[in-house]
């Protein structure tokens, strides 16, 4: 565990908490892509199946459970409890265009052709693009609430910090995982445009509004 990994995980945790609190406090999931949230639930489920097969540390186990519970909790709030506030007219990204290529890629490029390993690989590929329906929704409506922007910033920062963690581990521990690294780079790059808008607008107290 190094500082980049810890900050990355905390940023990830913060993102998940911001999202749950936003929905809970405002009693609304307006502006949030249910499709992205479905993809994230699939990501955590596929990746954290190893909860039952391998023990790393209490920290890992607790965090995995938190992400799983938070993710299904978010789905519950969006699709059941506050279903009426779900903005499905603007949430139209076709997720099969993301899921199917990730399945095929996981079957072709993986470390080991075993069920758990392929599911892990699939989750890494899917996570890298899972935010696209949300970004598509923001671009479609042309704006995002500040709280949604904070959520996206924390979520984007998390994998960015993991990139520094992987650079550190390469030198300090001689450890690297090309699948995670390349997917992590893709994931972080997808947020770049949003990061720019966040820093130039939201941090100056303005609403995130895309140029017309």
């Amino acid at each position: 565990m190094n500082i980049f990994r810890l900050l990355g995980d905390l940023s990830h945790l913060l993102a998940v908490i911001i999202l749950l609190l936003k929905i809970w406090k405002t009693r609304s999931c307006a502006g949030i892509s249910g499709r992205s949230q479905i993809l994230f639930a699939a990501v955590y489920t596929a990746r954290y199946l190893d909860l039952v097969t391998s023990y790393i540390s209490a920290y890992n186990t607790v965090m995995k459970i938190v992400f799983l519970v938070a993710s299904y909790g978010t789905l519950y709030l969006m699709f059941l409890k506050f279903k009426a506030t779900y903005d499905h007219n603007h949430d139209t990204f076709r997720i099969e265009f993301l899921v199917l290529p990730c399945v095929i890629l996981a079957l072709l490029i993986n470390h080991d052709f075993s069920a758990l390993e392929i599911l892990w690989t699939f989750s890494i590929y899917l996570e890298s693009v899972a935010i696209l329906p949300q970004l598509f929704m923001v671009s479609k409506t042309g704006e995002a609430e500040s709280i949604t922007s904070h959520y996206l910033f924390a979520l984007g920062t998390y994998r960015g910090l993991y990139l520094f963690n992987w650079i550190y581990r390469y030198y300090a521990e001689d450890h690297y995982d090309l699948i995670a690294i390349i997917a992590g780079i893709v994931q972080t790059v997808l947020y770049c445009d949003f990061f720019y808008l966040y820093i130039t607008k939201v941090l100056k107290g303005k609403k995130l509004q895309l140029p017309a």
């Binding site: 990994r5 995980d9 990830h12 990746r47 190893d50 391998s54 790393i56 540390s57 890992n60 965090m63 995995k64 992400f67 470390h111 080991d112 390993e117 892990w120 993991y162 963690n165 521990e173 001689d174 450890h175 690297y176 995982d177 090309l178 699948i179 995670a180």
Partner: peptide
Amino acid sequence: RTGCEGHDEL
């Protein structure tokens, strides 16, 4: 050490 020898990250 690369890849598959136990994924110890989240």
